[in-house]
């Protein structure tokens, strides 16, 4: 009896959520589909697509930003890995923290991160974003950035060469392929 009651409750809930539901037709949400797909081999195919289109946001924050822009230029040809610089957070998959985060800039950075559409990943580029770097003991630098953002790959260097940033992207691709990235929950 108890089970039946529970089932009835679930049906009622569904009706309450979507008042225009048709009898006999099961409705679902995109979240539910996504959660179902994560358990099937189809996710491997999706991840293959995701890892080969890591569009990153051109959001330079310091001298590392110059290297990031250089990485996006023609010389390093990141397009062969599907890595393309984008100007808008709405079109980007990857945010690169490319410099020290000051207390004043942190709210803006959070807003940019919130504006990006999921699935999204985040890279910490350079010593400044990892630990503070030369601005380690500054009065207005935010430390321990990994407590605020789910950072997948740390790229040390001051600044890292474009090859290093590219290697970071490739490591992120490997993490996505192995389903160990922090951007999506498995």
């Amino acid at each position: 009896m108890g089970e039946v009651n529970q089932k009835e409750k679930k049906v009622d809930l569904r009706k309450a959520q979507s008042p225009e539901s048709i009898p006999g037709v099961m409705t679902t949400t995109s979240n539910a589909i996504s959660d179902f797909l994560k358990k099937t081999p189809a996710q491997d195919f999706i991840n293959w697509g995701r890892k080969n289109s890591l569009w990153f946001m051109t959001q330079p924050m310091g001298c590392c930003g110059v290297e990031m822009i250089a990485t996006g230029c023609a010389h390093y040809d990141t397009d062969r890995f599907g890595i393309i610089p984008r100007n808008s957070p709405r079109q980007a998959d990857v945010m690169v923290i490319s410099g020290y985060v000051t207390k004043k800039y942190l709210p803006a950075l959070k807003k940019l991160w919130d504006q990006m559409a999921s699935p999204k990943w985040i890279l910490a580029m350079g010593d400044c974003s990892i630990s503070g770097g030369p601005f380690y003991q500054s009065y207005s630098t935010v430390q321990n950035i990994e407590e605020i953002f789910p950072i997948d790959v740390y790229i040390p260097g001051c600044p890292p060469r474009p090859e290093a940033l590219l290697e970071g992207f490739i490591q992120l691709q490997k993490k996505i392929e192995a389903k160990k990235d922090k951007g999506s929950e498995y």
């Binding site: 010593d127 770097g133 380690y136 003991q137 009065y139 430390q143 321990n144 990994e146």
Partner: peptide, 21 residues
């Protein structure tokens, strides 16, 4: 109100970073 460039300012983050390179 913190006046960070005064000599007696003590709000510096002292050894709090975990990811020291």
């Amino acid at each position: 109100g913190e006046w960070p460039l005064r000599k007696d300012y003590e709000g510096f983050p002292q050894n709090t970073a975990k990811n020291l390179v």
